[in-house]
Amino acid sequence: MSGGDIKLVGFLCNWCSYAGADMAGTSRMAQPAEMRIVRLPCTGRVNPLLVLKAFQEGADGVLVSGCHPGDCHYNEGNYYAHRRLELLSRMMAVYGIEPERFRYTWISASEGARWAETVTGFTETIRPLGRLNLAGGGARDDDHHQGPAAGSASPAEKR
């Protein structure tokens, strides 16, 4: 992938937003292609660290989407998620990540058009921000048993 391309990750709940995204796809609605979707049972399963880890491993934007409040398949998963995700969005700037790079939304299975709009809007917000480059300046997770690569610069120098 060329340097300028952005990578987005979407954590979507199986019951509402994933079905909504699926609907947008099968109805052939136009939407940008930068988003990789990870399907999860519920936004209640979205550990905020999944979002931060995605940024650390090279994501430039992360979107979390689940059922509307009151519509959770497991009744209350998204209520717990709401607290965590709101806190996470308030902490983003403290971690040094532009707050726009993280969003959470509620999209139902029947809202294919809304999904297409959301993902388009999100992608257009991130494009001008460009790459986050948080993955630089350190070993990838799976590298570490090989020890530091020969001639690798210190994290500070590499940045």
Binding site: L49, A135, G138, D141, P155, A156
Partner: peptide, 25 residues
């Protein structure tokens, strides 16, 4: 799961602190 790699570098050390901060919320 491996949340943070074992390498002692800025990136992994930042990750362990992100873990801690989130767990302390």
């Amino acid at each position: 799961p491996r949340w943070a790699g074992g390498a002692v570098d800025a990136k992994q050390s930042e990750m362990i602190q992100l873990i801690r901060v989130n767990h302390l919320a």
